[in-house]
Design a protein around this nucleic acid. Sequence first.
RNA 1: CCAGGGGGCCGGGCAGCCGCGCUAUCCGCAAGGGUAUCGAGGAAAGUCCGGGCUCCACGAAACAAGGGUGGCGGGUAAUGCCCGCCGGGGGUGACCCCAGGGAAAGUGCCACAGAGAGCAGACCGCCUUCCGGGCCUGACGAAGGAUCGGUAAGGUAAGGGUGAAAGGGUGCGGUAAGAGCGCACCGGGGGGCUGGUAACAGCACCCGCAUGGCAAACCCCACCCGGAGCAAGACCGAAUAGGGGCGGCGCGCGCUUCGGCGCAGGCGUGUUUCGCGCUGGACCGCCCGGGUUGGUUGCUUGAGCCGCGCCGCAAGGCCCGGCCUAGAGGAAUGGCUGCCGAUGCGGAUACGGUCUCUUCUGGGAUACCGUCCGCGCUACAGAACCCGGCUUACAGGCCCCCUGGCGAA
Length: 123
Amino acid sequence: MKPSVLSRRADFLAANRGLRVARPGFVLLVNPNGGDAMRYGITVTKKIGNAVVRNRMKRRFRALLRELLPQQGIASADHVLIGRETGIERDFGKLREELAMALSRAAQGKGDPPRKNVPRKRR
RNA sequence: CCAGGGGGCCGGGCAGCCGCGCUAUCCGCAAGGGUAUCGAGGAAAGUCCGGGCUCCACGAAACAAGGGUGGCGGGUAAUGCCCGCCGGGGGUGACCCCAGGGAAAGUGCCACAGAGAGCAGACCGCCUUCCGGGCCUGACGAAGGAUCGGUAAGGUAAGGGUGAAAGGGUGCGGUAAGAGCGCACCGGGGGGCUGGUAACAGCACCCGCAUGGCAAACCCCACCCGGAGCAAGACCGAAUAGGGGCGGCGCGCGCUUCGGCGCAGGCGUGUUUCGCGCUGGACCGCCCGGGUUGGUUGCUUGAGCCGCGCCGCAAGGCCCGGCCUAGAGGAAUGGCUGCCGAUGCGGAUACGGUCUCUUCUGGGAUACCGUCCGCGCUACAGAACCCGGCUUACAGGCCCCCUGGCGAA
Protein backbone atom coordinates (compact mmCIF):
# COMPACT_ATOMS: atom_id res chain seq x y z
CA MET A 1 0.00 0.00 0.00
CA LYS A 2 1.32 3.30 -1.01
CA PRO A 3 1.62 5.99 1.69
CA SER A 4 -0.22 9.22 1.00
CA VAL A 5 0.75 12.77 1.77
CA LEU A 6 -0.48 14.93 4.60
CA SER A 7 -1.87 18.22 3.40
CA ARG A 8 -3.99 19.66 6.19
CA ARG A 9 -2.62 21.91 8.86
CA ALA A 10 -4.84 20.24 11.44
CA ASP A 11 -3.19 16.88 10.77
CA PHE A 12 0.22 18.39 11.37
CA LEU A 13 -0.96 19.93 14.63
CA ALA A 14 -2.48 16.62 15.70
CA ALA A 15 0.79 14.82 14.99
CA ASN A 16 2.45 17.14 17.45
CA ARG A 17 0.59 15.33 20.25
CA GLY A 18 1.83 11.89 19.19
CA LEU A 19 5.07 10.01 19.71
CA ARG A 20 8.19 12.04 19.31
CA VAL A 21 11.63 10.63 18.41
CA ALA A 22 14.49 13.07 17.98
CA ARG A 23 17.58 12.23 15.91
CA PRO A 24 20.54 14.44 14.92
CA GLY A 25 19.20 15.30 11.47
CA PHE A 26 15.47 15.42 12.14
CA VAL A 27 12.59 14.85 14.55
CA LEU A 28 10.07 12.12 13.78
CA LEU A 29 6.48 12.42 14.93
CA VAL A 30 4.18 9.41 14.79
CA ASN A 31 0.46 9.74 15.49
CA PRO A 32 -2.25 7.12 14.92
CA ASN A 33 -4.89 8.45 12.56
CA GLY A 34 -7.61 5.94 13.34
CA GLY A 35 -7.96 3.66 10.39
CA ASP A 36 -6.78 5.75 7.50
CA ALA A 37 -3.86 4.62 5.42
CA MET A 38 -0.26 5.22 6.31
CA ARG A 39 0.53 8.87 5.67
CA TYR A 40 3.55 11.11 5.88
CA GLY A 41 4.31 14.82 5.97
CA ILE A 42 7.43 16.95 6.01
CA THR A 43 7.99 20.20 7.84
CA VAL A 44 11.03 22.36 7.20
CA THR A 45 10.75 25.82 8.69
CA LYS A 46 12.27 29.01 7.42
CA LYS A 47 14.74 28.82 10.27
CA ILE A 48 16.57 26.11 8.34
CA GLY A 49 17.40 28.19 5.29
CA ASN A 50 16.08 29.63 2.08
CA ALA A 51 13.76 27.87 -0.34
CA VAL A 52 16.57 26.05 -2.11
CA VAL A 53 17.90 24.53 1.05
CA ARG A 54 14.43 23.74 2.37
CA ASN A 55 13.21 22.11 -0.80
CA ARG A 56 16.35 20.03 -1.13
CA MET A 57 15.92 18.80 2.42
CA LYS A 58 12.29 17.93 1.66
CA ARG A 59 13.30 16.01 -1.45
CA ARG A 60 15.89 13.98 0.44
CA PHE A 61 13.45 13.27 3.29
CA ARG A 62 10.87 12.18 0.77
CA ALA A 63 13.35 9.78 -0.80
CA LEU A 64 14.08 8.33 2.64
CA LEU A 65 10.42 7.87 3.49
CA ARG A 66 9.66 6.16 0.20
CA GLU A 67 12.50 3.79 0.84
CA LEU A 68 11.72 2.88 4.46
CA LEU A 69 8.02 3.43 5.11
CA PRO A 70 6.63 0.46 3.12
CA GLN A 71 8.67 -2.00 5.23
CA GLN A 72 9.22 -0.24 8.53
CA GLY A 73 6.40 2.29 8.69
CA ILE A 74 3.64 2.06 11.24
CA ALA A 75 0.26 1.16 9.79
CA SER A 76 -2.65 3.56 10.20
CA ALA A 77 -0.42 6.34 11.45
CA ASP A 78 0.75 9.73 10.34
CA HIS A 79 4.52 10.19 10.11
CA VAL A 80 5.86 13.72 10.20
CA LEU A 81 9.53 14.54 9.70
CA ILE A 82 10.70 17.89 11.01
CA GLY A 83 14.01 19.11 9.59
CA ARG A 84 16.75 20.33 11.89
CA GLU A 85 19.68 22.56 11.06
CA THR A 86 22.17 19.74 11.56
CA GLY A 87 20.33 17.75 8.90
CA ILE A 88 21.41 20.04 6.07
CA GLU A 89 23.45 17.92 3.64
CA ARG A 90 23.88 15.23 6.30
CA ASP A 91 25.24 11.96 4.92
CA PHE A 92 22.36 10.05 3.32
CA GLY A 93 23.45 6.69 4.74
CA LYS A 94 23.47 8.08 8.26
CA LEU A 95 20.05 9.60 7.79
CA ARG A 96 18.75 6.23 6.58
CA GLU A 97 20.11 4.42 9.66
CA GLU A 98 18.73 7.07 11.97
CA LEU A 99 15.29 6.98 10.42
CA ALA A 100 15.21 3.17 10.65
CA MET A 101 16.13 3.39 14.32
CA ALA A 102 13.56 6.06 14.97
CA LEU A 103 10.84 4.03 13.26
CA SER A 104 11.62 0.91 15.28
CA ARG A 105 11.60 2.88 18.52
CA ALA A 106 8.26 4.41 17.58
CA ALA A 107 6.90 0.97 16.72
CA GLN A 108 7.75 -0.14 20.28
CA GLY A 109 5.92 2.89 21.61
CA LYS A 110 9.04 4.53 22.96
CA GLY A 111 9.33 8.20 22.39
CA ASP A 112 11.38 10.99 23.75
CA PRO A 113 9.68 13.24 26.31
CA PRO A 114 7.40 15.72 24.59
CA ARG A 115 8.34 19.29 24.55
CA LYS A 116 7.22 21.15 27.62
CA ASN A 117 5.09 24.23 27.42
CA VAL A 118 7.82 26.19 29.18
CA PRO A 119 10.76 25.18 27.09
CA ARG A 120 12.96 28.23 27.14
CA LYS A 121 14.25 30.56 29.74
CA ARG A 122 11.05 32.31 30.53
CA ARG A 123 10.67 33.78 33.96
C1' C B 1 55.77 34.09 -25.22
C1' C B 2 54.40 37.93 -21.46
C1' A B 3 50.97 41.78 -19.95
C1' G B 4 46.27 43.71 -21.02
C1' G B 5 41.25 45.26 -23.48
C1' G B 6 36.44 43.86 -25.64
C1' G B 7 32.68 40.21 -26.92
C1' G B 8 30.22 35.39 -27.10
C1' C B 9 29.27 30.43 -25.09
C1' C B 10 29.15 26.01 -21.88
C1' G B 11 28.36 25.00 -17.00
C1' G B 12 29.12 17.79 -16.53
C1' G B 13 28.33 12.94 -20.20
C1' C B 14 26.78 7.67 -20.49
C1' A B 15 24.68 3.30 -18.18
C1' G B 16 22.07 0.58 -14.32
C1' C B 17 18.73 0.11 -10.00
C1' C B 18 14.90 2.38 -6.74
C1' G B 19 11.36 6.56 -7.10
C1' C B 20 8.16 11.46 -8.50
C1' G B 21 4.67 14.74 -11.82
C1' C B 22 1.65 15.84 -16.34
C1' U B 23 -0.34 13.69 -20.64
C1' A B 24 -1.66 9.58 -23.87
C1' U B 25 -3.02 4.58 -23.97
C1' C B 26 -4.25 -0.40 -22.09
C1' C B 27 -6.41 -3.68 -18.01
C1' G B 28 -10.09 -3.24 -14.08
C1' C B 29 -17.13 -2.37 -11.60
C1' A B 30 -13.96 0.40 -8.49
C1' A B 31 -9.69 1.17 -5.64
C1' G B 32 -5.62 0.75 -8.30
C1' G B 33 -1.98 -1.14 -11.72
C1' G B 34 1.00 -1.69 -16.57
C1' U B 35 3.40 0.77 -20.83
C1' A B 36 5.29 5.13 -23.50
C1' U B 37 6.75 10.31 -24.49
C1' C B 38 8.14 14.62 -21.98
C1' G B 39 9.76 17.09 -17.38
C1' A B 40 14.02 23.91 -14.37
C1' G B 41 17.88 28.36 -15.33
C1' G B 42 21.59 31.53 -17.30
C1' A B 43 20.61 33.71 -13.80
C1' A B 44 14.35 30.23 -12.69
C1' A B 45 17.18 34.89 -7.78
C1' G B 46 16.62 40.33 -6.13
C1' U B 47 11.46 42.12 -7.30
C1' C B 48 14.59 47.42 -9.34
C1' C B 49 12.35 49.30 -14.22
C1' G B 50 9.15 48.42 -18.80
C1' G B 51 4.97 45.86 -21.19
C1' G B 52 1.02 42.03 -22.26
C1' C B 53 -3.31 40.14 -19.71
C1' U B 54 -7.44 40.76 -15.91
C1' C B 55 -10.57 43.55 -12.71
C1' C B 56 -11.81 48.48 -10.68
C1' A B 57 -12.42 53.77 -11.65
C1' C B 58 -13.24 57.22 -15.62
C1' G B 59 -17.36 61.40 -21.29
C1' A B 60 -12.90 63.49 -24.14
C1' A B 61 -9.09 66.61 -23.24
C1' A B 62 -6.52 70.04 -20.38
C1' C B 63 -4.85 71.80 -15.70
C1' A B 64 -3.28 70.93 -10.65
C1' A B 65 -0.83 67.57 -7.22
C1' G B 66 2.70 63.68 -6.70
C1' G B 67 6.45 60.61 -8.91
C1' G B 68 9.99 59.72 -12.72
C1' U B 69 13.38 60.80 -16.86
C1' G B 70 17.36 64.45 -18.58
C1' G B 71 23.40 65.49 -24.79
C1' C B 72 21.46 64.10 -30.01
C1' G B 73 19.48 60.53 -33.45
C1' G B 74 17.68 55.66 -34.00
C1' G B 75 15.60 50.55 -32.26
C1' U B 76 11.33 48.61 -29.65
C1' A B 77 4.94 46.76 -27.48
C1' A B 78 7.56 49.85 -24.00
C1' U B 79 11.51 51.48 -20.81
C1' G B 80 15.28 54.40 -16.59
C1' C B 81 17.00 49.15 -21.65
C1' C B 82 19.91 48.54 -26.32
C1' C B 83 22.68 50.58 -30.74
C1' G B 84 25.18 54.57 -33.26
C1' C B 85 27.03 59.44 -32.84
C1' C B 86 28.48 64.13 -30.10
C1' G B 87 30.80 66.62 -25.82
C1' G B 88 33.94 66.15 -21.26
C1' G B 89 37.59 63.13 -18.39
C1' G B 90 41.33 58.90 -17.98
C1' G B 91 44.90 55.47 -20.47
C1' U B 92 51.27 54.61 -24.58
C1' G B 93 47.20 51.78 -26.73
C1' A B 94 43.04 48.27 -27.51
C1' C B 95 39.46 50.70 -24.73
C1' C B 96 37.09 52.57 -20.19
C1' C B 97 34.20 56.25 -17.17
C1' C B 98 30.26 60.51 -16.99
C1' A B 99 23.02 62.27 -13.11
C1' G B 100 25.97 65.02 -19.61
C1' G B 101 19.27 70.49 -19.75
C1' G B 102 19.15 75.63 -17.20
C1' A B 103 23.51 79.18 -12.37
C1' A B 104 22.84 87.45 -16.34
C1' A B 105 14.41 84.08 -13.50
C1' G B 106 14.59 84.00 -8.26
C1' U B 107 15.79 82.07 -3.17
C1' G B 108 19.55 79.58 -0.46
C1' C B 109 24.48 77.49 0.85
C1' C B 110 30.04 77.87 0.29
C1' A B 111 32.09 74.84 6.94
C1' C B 112 37.41 74.94 8.72
C1' A B 113 41.59 77.62 7.38
C1' G B 114 42.62 82.37 5.55
C1' A B 115 43.95 89.41 5.17
C1' G B 116 40.04 88.43 1.88
C1' A B 117 34.57 83.59 -0.26
C1' G B 118 30.45 87.26 -3.89
C1' C B 119 28.57 95.09 -4.57
C1' A B 120 36.12 90.73 -3.06
C1' G B 121 40.69 91.42 -0.16
C1' A B 122 46.04 93.61 1.79
C1' C B 123 48.93 89.14 6.51
C1' C B 124 54.09 88.47 4.79
C1' G B 125 56.40 90.57 0.68
C1' C B 126 57.49 94.38 -3.36
C1' C B 127 57.57 99.82 -4.59
C1' U B 128 57.16 105.30 -3.76
C1' U B 129 56.92 109.23 -0.26
C1' C B 130 57.85 110.69 4.87
C1' C B 131 60.77 110.19 9.60
C1' G B 132 65.34 108.34 11.95
C1' G B 133 70.52 106.07 12.14
C1' G B 134 75.34 105.45 10.68
C1' C B 135 78.24 104.86 5.75
C1' C B 136 80.22 106.85 0.71
C1' U B 137 81.34 111.45 -2.72
C1' G B 138 81.97 116.36 -0.99
C1' A B 139 84.50 119.35 3.76
C1' C B 140 82.22 116.69 9.64
C1' G B 141 78.16 122.10 5.78
C1' A B 142 74.58 122.30 1.47
C1' A B 143 73.46 118.73 -2.19
C1' G B 144 73.58 113.76 -4.04
C1' G B 145 74.05 108.20 -3.63
C1' A B 146 73.45 103.26 -1.93
C1' U B 147 71.81 100.80 2.57
C1' C B 148 69.33 99.61 7.44
C1' G B 149 65.17 100.53 10.72
C1' G B 150 59.96 102.58 11.57
C1' U B 151 53.78 101.83 15.81
C1' A B 152 53.79 106.96 9.50
C1' A B 153 51.05 107.91 4.57
C1' G B 154 50.00 105.65 0.00
C1' G B 155 50.48 102.24 -4.44
C1' U B 156 50.33 97.01 -5.85
C1' A B 157 48.15 91.87 -6.82
C1' A B 158 53.65 89.49 -9.91
C1' G B 159 55.69 86.13 -5.53
C1' G B 160 54.79 83.58 -0.44
C1' G B 161 50.96 81.67 2.59
C1' U B 162 45.31 79.61 3.40
C1' G B 163 41.75 76.82 0.94
C1' A B 164 37.81 72.31 -2.78
C1' A B 165 37.74 77.11 -5.05
C1' A B 166 41.42 83.59 -4.64
C1' G B 167 38.00 87.42 -10.36
C1' G B 168 41.45 83.59 -17.15
C1' G B 169 46.69 80.80 -18.55
C1' U B 170 51.88 81.10 -20.71
C1' G B 171 55.53 84.37 -22.67
C1' C B 172 57.40 89.14 -24.05
C1' G B 173 56.99 94.25 -23.40
C1' G B 174 55.93 97.80 -19.82
C1' U B 175 56.31 100.03 -14.86
C1' A B 176 58.57 103.02 -8.90
C1' A B 177 56.70 98.11 -8.06
C1' G B 178 52.85 95.94 -10.56
C1' A B 179 48.40 94.90 -13.16
C1' G B 180 44.84 92.76 -20.10
C1' C B 181 48.10 98.28 -18.85
C1' G B 182 49.86 96.79 -24.23
C1' C B 183 51.00 92.66 -27.70
C1' A B 184 51.29 87.22 -29.47
C1' C B 185 49.32 82.37 -28.73
C1' C B 186 45.75 79.43 -25.94
C1' G B 187 41.07 79.82 -23.27
C1' G B 188 36.23 82.69 -22.90
C1' G B 189 32.05 85.71 -24.83
C1' G B 190 29.16 87.83 -29.13
C1' G B 191 26.58 87.92 -33.57
C1' G B 192 27.71 85.72 -38.62
C1' C B 193 28.99 82.06 -42.51
C1' U B 194 29.81 76.85 -43.84
C1' G B 195 28.99 71.47 -42.86
C1' G B 196 25.67 68.07 -40.27
C1' U B 197 18.55 65.42 -39.53
C1' A B 198 20.54 66.90 -34.73
C1' A B 199 23.74 67.11 -30.43
C1' C B 200 27.80 69.71 -32.31
C1' A B 201 32.09 70.98 -35.23
C1' G B 202 35.06 74.22 -38.42
C1' C B 203 36.26 79.17 -40.29
C1' A B 204 37.10 84.37 -40.33
C1' C B 205 35.60 88.90 -37.73
C1' C B 206 34.57 91.71 -33.27
C1' C B 207 35.04 92.23 -27.66
C1' G B 208 40.75 92.82 -23.08
C1' C B 209 37.55 89.63 -20.50
C1' A B 210 32.27 92.29 -18.18
C1' U B 211 28.41 88.26 -13.86
C1' G B 212 33.02 81.37 -9.56
C1' G B 213 30.98 76.52 -7.50
C1' C B 214 26.68 73.66 -5.73
C1' A B 215 20.48 72.25 -9.30
C1' A B 216 21.71 63.48 -6.26
C1' A B 217 19.52 72.30 -2.25
C1' C B 218 14.69 74.53 -3.34
C1' C B 219 13.57 75.75 -8.12
C1' C B 220 12.82 76.65 -13.75
C1' C B 221 12.29 74.09 -18.59
C1' A B 222 11.04 69.78 -21.76
C1' C B 223 9.00 64.93 -21.95
C1' C B 224 6.49 60.43 -19.58
C1' C B 225 2.98 58.27 -15.87
C1' G B 226 -5.00 56.36 -13.51
C1' G B 227 -5.08 52.21 -9.48
C1' A B 228 -4.51 47.18 -8.05
C1' G B 229 -2.58 42.63 -9.19
C1' C B 230 -3.14 35.46 -11.45
C1' A B 231 -4.19 35.08 -3.87
C1' A B 232 -6.06 39.39 -10.94
C1' G B 233 -10.50 37.47 -12.80
C1' A B 234 -14.42 33.86 -14.67
C1' C B 235 -17.43 29.47 -13.90
C1' C B 236 -19.58 25.05 -11.50
C1' G B 237 -21.51 23.52 -7.03
C1' A B 238 -23.26 18.26 -3.01
C1' A B 239 -25.28 17.50 2.02
C1' U B 240 -27.16 20.16 6.30
C1' A B 241 -28.96 24.52 8.63
C1' G B 242 -30.80 29.11 7.34
C1' G B 243 -32.01 34.40 4.70
C1' G B 244 -34.85 37.42 0.95
C1' G B 245 -38.54 38.04 -3.09
C1' C B 246 -42.73 36.49 -6.23
C1' G B 247 -46.79 33.24 -7.06
C1' G B 248 -50.52 29.16 -5.80
C1' C B 249 -54.97 29.72 -2.10
C1' G B 250 -58.84 31.36 3.19
C1' C B 251 -53.78 33.33 5.60
C1' G B 252 -56.93 36.68 10.81
C1' C B 253 -57.50 38.05 16.31
C1' G B 254 -56.12 37.75 21.63
C1' C B 255 -52.71 36.02 25.55
C1' U B 256 -47.64 34.46 26.31
C1' U B 257 -42.60 32.62 30.62
C1' C B 258 -41.52 32.85 23.05
C1' G B 259 -41.98 26.47 24.32
C1' G B 260 -46.95 27.33 23.17
C1' C B 261 -52.44 28.10 24.43
C1' G B 262 -57.38 29.79 23.11
C1' C B 263 -60.76 31.67 19.37
C1' A B 264 -62.06 32.63 14.31
C1' G B 265 -61.23 30.05 9.77
C1' G B 266 -60.28 25.56 6.59
C1' C B 267 -60.86 20.18 5.59
C1' G B 268 -63.53 15.50 6.70
C1' U B 269 -68.19 13.39 8.63
C1' G B 270 -73.24 15.10 8.39
C1' U B 271 -79.73 17.32 5.13
C1' U B 272 -79.10 21.55 8.53
C1' U B 273 -78.25 23.63 13.65
C1' C B 274 -75.22 21.38 17.11
C1' G B 275 -71.25 18.01 17.87
C1' C B 276 -66.75 15.10 16.85
C1' G B 277 -61.79 14.34 14.46
C1' C B 278 -57.71 16.65 11.95
C1' U B 279 -55.42 21.26 10.96
C1' G B 280 -54.64 25.77 13.27
C1' G B 281 -49.87 27.71 9.98
C1' A B 282 -47.62 25.03 7.05
C1' C B 283 -47.05 23.12 2.17
C1' C B 284 -45.77 23.55 -3.03
C1' G B 285 -43.41 25.95 -7.33
C1' C B 286 -39.98 29.52 -9.26
C1' C B 287 -36.14 33.12 -8.61
C1' C B 288 -32.12 35.74 -6.01
C1' G B 289 -28.09 36.35 -2.64
C1' G B 290 -24.43 35.01 1.29
C1' G B 291 -21.11 31.56 4.18
C1' U B 292 -17.99 26.88 4.79
C1' U B 293 -15.54 23.27 1.87
C1' G B 294 -14.29 21.42 -2.88
C1' G B 295 -13.67 21.39 -8.17
C1' U B 296 -12.97 23.58 -13.22
C1' U B 297 -10.85 27.56 -15.81
C1' G B 298 -7.30 31.54 -16.34
C1' C B 299 -2.43 28.02 -17.69
C1' U B 300 0.81 28.02 -21.38
C1' U B 301 0.90 29.23 -29.15
C1' G B 302 4.07 33.29 -27.54
C1' A B 303 6.44 40.85 -28.87
C1' G B 304 7.80 32.11 -29.25
C1' C B 305 12.11 28.99 -31.13
C1' C B 306 15.27 27.21 -35.41
C1' G B 307 17.13 27.82 -40.51
C1' C B 308 17.88 30.29 -45.54
C1' G B 309 17.67 35.02 -47.84
C1' C B 310 17.18 40.47 -47.98
C1' C B 311 17.63 45.69 -45.61
C1' G B 312 20.60 48.35 -41.85
C1' C B 313 27.47 50.61 -39.47
C1' A B 314 24.63 48.53 -35.38
C1' A B 315 20.61 47.69 -31.94
C1' G B 316 17.11 45.58 -34.95
C1' G B 317 13.46 44.81 -38.98
C1' C B 318 11.17 41.98 -43.10
C1' C B 319 10.07 37.53 -46.38
C1' C B 320 9.76 32.25 -46.84
C1' G B 321 10.04 27.37 -44.73
C1' G B 322 10.05 24.24 -40.49
C1' C B 323 9.02 23.13 -35.16
C1' C B 324 5.64 22.76 -30.49
C1' U B 325 9.54 22.83 -26.14
C1' A B 326 7.64 21.83 -17.89
C1' G B 327 2.73 23.12 -16.30
C1' A B 328 3.18 21.59 -10.28
C1' G B 329 -0.36 23.14 -6.43
C1' G B 330 2.39 21.21 1.53
C1' A B 331 4.13 22.47 -4.68
C1' A B 332 6.87 16.85 -9.45
C1' U B 333 12.12 17.12 -12.28
C1' G B 334 15.00 13.12 -6.66
C1' G B 335 18.42 9.19 -4.28
C1' C B 336 22.38 5.61 -4.85
C1' U B 337 26.22 3.01 -7.64
C1' G B 338 29.75 2.32 -11.67
C1' C B 339 32.59 4.13 -15.85
C1' C B 340 34.28 8.41 -18.42
C1' G B 341 35.43 13.70 -18.74
C1' A B 342 37.39 18.36 -16.63
C1' U B 343 40.58 20.35 -12.81
C1' G B 344 44.07 20.74 -8.23
C1' C B 345 47.72 18.28 -5.07
C1' G B 346 51.04 14.25 -4.11
C1' G B 347 53.68 10.01 -5.92
C1' A B 348 55.75 6.43 -9.66
C1' U B 349 58.07 5.56 -14.36
C1' A B 350 63.46 6.94 -18.45
C1' C B 351 58.50 3.45 -22.34
C1' G B 352 57.42 7.96 -26.01
C1' G B 353 58.62 13.25 -26.67
C1' U B 354 62.98 16.83 -25.20
C1' C B 355 68.50 17.77 -24.55
C1' U B 356 73.40 15.79 -25.28
C1' C B 357 77.58 12.37 -26.75
C1' U B 358 78.66 8.94 -30.51
C1' U B 359 82.90 4.24 -33.05
C1' C B 360 75.93 5.27 -36.16
C1' U B 361 75.36 -0.21 -32.87
C1' G B 362 74.09 2.58 -29.10
C1' G B 363 75.32 5.41 -24.38
C1' G B 364 74.02 9.41 -21.03
C1' A B 365 70.93 13.59 -18.76
C1' U B 366 66.19 15.48 -17.25
C1' A B 367 60.26 14.65 -13.99
C1' C B 368 59.17 20.07 -18.44
C1' C B 369 55.11 17.43 -21.56
C1' G B 370 52.96 12.63 -22.20
C1' U B 371 51.70 7.88 -19.51
C1' C B 372 50.18 5.28 -14.88
C1' C B 373 48.43 5.31 -9.53
C1' G B 374 46.16 7.60 -5.12
C1' C B 375 43.42 11.48 -2.77
C1' G B 376 40.59 15.89 -3.14
C1' C B 377 37.24 19.16 -5.78
C1' U B 378 32.88 19.61 -9.38
C1' A B 379 29.77 26.22 -8.35
C1' C B 380 25.63 29.88 -7.92
C1' A B 381 21.14 28.16 -7.39
C1' G B 382 14.72 25.39 -7.99
C1' A B 383 9.73 27.45 -12.71
C1' A B 384 4.52 29.10 -9.87
C1' C B 385 0.30 33.98 -15.35
C1' C B 386 3.68 35.27 -19.42
C1' C B 387 7.36 38.27 -21.85
C1' G B 388 11.58 42.47 -22.57
C1' G B 389 15.53 44.58 -19.62
C1' C B 390 18.68 45.85 -15.41
C1' U B 391 21.31 44.28 -11.11
C1' U B 392 23.45 40.70 -8.07
C1' A B 393 25.62 35.36 -7.28
C1' C B 394 28.66 31.64 -9.74
C1' A B 395 33.65 25.69 -8.99
C1' G B 396 35.64 25.20 -13.47
C1' G B 397 36.20 25.50 -18.72
C1' C B 398 35.94 26.81 -24.18
C1' C B 399 35.94 30.17 -28.52
C1' C B 400 36.58 34.83 -31.37
C1' C B 401 38.50 39.80 -32.18
C1' C B 402 41.89 43.61 -30.71
C1' U B 403 46.18 46.47 -28.08
C1' G B 404 51.24 47.13 -25.95
C1' G B 405 56.10 44.78 -25.22
C1' C B 406 59.91 41.04 -26.42
C1' G B 407 61.78 37.45 -30.05
C1' A B 408 61.92 35.30 -35.07
C1' A B 409 61.12 36.03 -40.27
